[in-house]
Design a protein around this nucleic acid. Structure first.
Lengths: 246, 246
DNA sequence: CAAAGTCAAGAGCACTGCTCTCAATTGTTG
DNA sequence: CAACAATTGAGAGCAGTGCTCTTGACTTTG
C-alpha cells in the first residue's frame, strides 16, 4: 500500500522528509511539463525520465496520473489566488473599482503567462478526470471570494450605484429558485449585497473568465483585435459599470 | 498519395461516391466517440474498430487524427451555426432583444446537449493541434456574425439606448489601437454601429460564452446555483441591457 | 542487529498514432 | 470484354503511453 499517510502536515521522520521532497520534485517537473506541453500531454513517464528514475518508481509517490493532475490543479489555484490577493491588496481598500480592476488584470496576466495551467483550471475538463471536490474547492474558490468581497464591501460602503442594477425594465425581481440560491450563497459567504447585485456579480465573474478564455484560447479571430490590452481594459470598465461599481 | 482530390464538391465517379460515404461514416463515428469520450480520448483505432476495419485503413480516408478533429470541428461549428440561425430566424426581425435571447438560448442549449463538442470548439485547445484557419474560420464565425447582425440591426433601427453605452464616466472615447481594430471589423462585416457599441458587443459575445462555459465545464460550485435556467435568463437580460438593447 | 518498511528497477499488458509493404479488389479504359 | 492501373484493406512493426506486479536491495526502526 504505497499510499501516503493521510495525516502528514509536517514531515517528521527523515523518510517522510525525503518522501515529501520527492513528491515536491514530481509536482515541480509536472508543472514544467504542463506549462510546455499542456494537460493532456502530461506524461508520468516523461516526468520519471526528468526525475532520473524509471517510470514505475513515481507510482510510489503519486497514485496515478489523475492524482498528479489534482496536485497540479491545487498548485495552480494556489498561485493564481496568491497573485490575485496580492494585486488586490496593493490597492487601497476603499477604492473598490480599483480593486476590481486589479483583480481582473491579475487573472488575465496570470492566464497569459500560464496558458496551459489556466486551461487546466478553466478550460474543458480533462477527459476521464474528475477533480476531487474536497481537495480543490477550497483553493478553487479564492478568486470568486475575493471578487464578491469587493462587491460586498462596495455595497456596505454604499457606493454601488442602485440605478445600474435595475435600469428600466431589467427584472428587478428574482425568480424564486434563483433567489433561494442567492440567499444560500450570501449566507455562506457572509455577504450583504442584495439579490440583483449578487447575480450581477456572478455574471461579472463568468464574463471576466470568458474574456480571458477567449484571449488565451485564441477564440478571437486572427486579424481581429490586435489591441488586446485596450480591449480588456474597456471590458473591465464596462463590467465594473455592470456591477454598479464606480 | 491518398489525399482526397481538392476539387470534389460533388462526387462523380462511383469510387468518389464510395469514398465520400466512407469519410462521412468516419466523421459520424468520430462524432459519436467525441460526444461520449471527449476530444482527447478520440481514437482513430476505436473509430476503425467501429467501422469494422483495421486501423491503418482509415488513414486512406483521413490523413491523421488532427484532420479528423478538423472535420469534427467544422461539423460541430456547422450544427451550432444552423441551430443558432434557426432560433434567431424564428423571432420576428424587429424584435432585436428577442433575437438576442434566442441566440443565447440556442448556444446554451446546444452546449448543454453536446458538452464534448462544445468543449472542442470553445474549451482549451487540444494540445499539439492547431485548427487550420482557412477551413475553420468560415464556419467558426457564424455565431458572432449573427450576434453582430442583431446589434447592427438594432442600431440602424435606432433602438439602441445611447445612455447605456456611455453612462457617467465610462470612457466614451476609445484608445487609438482599439479604435483601429473596431474600424476594421466594422468595415469587414459591413456594420454601422459605433465603436462603443461594437466593443460592448464583443464583450457580450465573450460573456455569453463565458457563462455557458462555466455551466458546461462545471465551474460553478457543487451546491451553488441549482437554478441554472433562471440564472442564465437573468444573465441574458443583463447582457442585453449592457449592449443597449431593449 | 535483525525485522520491518520502503524503494527502484525491470518485465509485461493493453492501448495509442502512424508508416510501410503486400496482396486483393475494384473501376476504368483500350 | 479483358488488361491495366488505381484504390483499398490487412498485417506487421515502431515508438510512445498508463499502469501492475515481482524481485532484489536498501534504510529506518524496535
Amino acid at each position: 500500500m504505497p499510499a501516503a499517510p493521510s495525516p502528514s502536515p509536517t514531515p517528521r521522520t527523515p523518510r517522510e522528509r525525503a518522501r515529501a521532497q520527492t513528491v515536491a520534485d514530481i509536482v515541480r517537473l509536472g508543472r514544467e511539463h504542463l506549462a510546455v506541453h499542456g494537460a493532456a500531454a502530461l506524461s508520468l513517464r516523461a516526468v520519471a525520465r526528468d526525475l532520473g528514475v524509471v517510470s514505475s518508481a513515481v507510482y510510489r509517490y503519486v497514485q496515478n496520473r489523475d492524482e498528479l493532475l489534482t496536485l497540479l490543479l491545487i498548485d495552480a489555484y494556489g498561485e493564481l489566488g496568491d497573485e490575485v490577493d496580492a494585486a488586490v491588496g496593493r490597492v487601497v481598500e476603499a477604492d473598490f473599482a480599483g480593486r476590481f480592476q486589479a483583480l481582473g488584470r491579475a487573472v488575465r496576466g496570470w492566464a497569459i503567462r500560464e496558458p496551459a495551467r489556466y486551461a487546466l483550471l478553466f478550460g474543458s475538463p480533462v477527459p476521464g478526470y474528475r477533480a476531487p471536490a474536497e481537495r480543490t474547492t477550497g483553493p478553487g474558490t479564492r478568486v470568486i471570494h475575493a471578487l464578491m468581497a469587493i462587491f460586498d464591501g462596495a455595497w456596505r460602503a454604499g457606493v454601488l450605484r442602485a440605478e445600474a442594477a435595475a435600469p428600466a425594465a431589467v427584472a428587478p425581481v428574482m425568480p424564486a429558485p434563483l433567489a433561494r440560491d442567492l440567499k444560500a450563497i450570501r449566507e455562506e459567504l457572509g455577504l450583504a449585497v442584495p439579490d440583483d447585485f449578487l447575480a450581477r456579480g456572478a455574471l461579472v465573474w463568468t464574463s471576466l473568465f470568458g474574456a480571458v478564455s477567449f484571449e488565451v484560447f485564441g477564440q478571437y479571430g486572427e486579424g481581429t483585435f490586435a489591441a488586446r490590452d485596450e480591449l480588456f481594459e474597456h471590458h473591465l470598465r464596462v463590467l465594473a459599470g455592470m456591477a454598479g461599481l464606480e
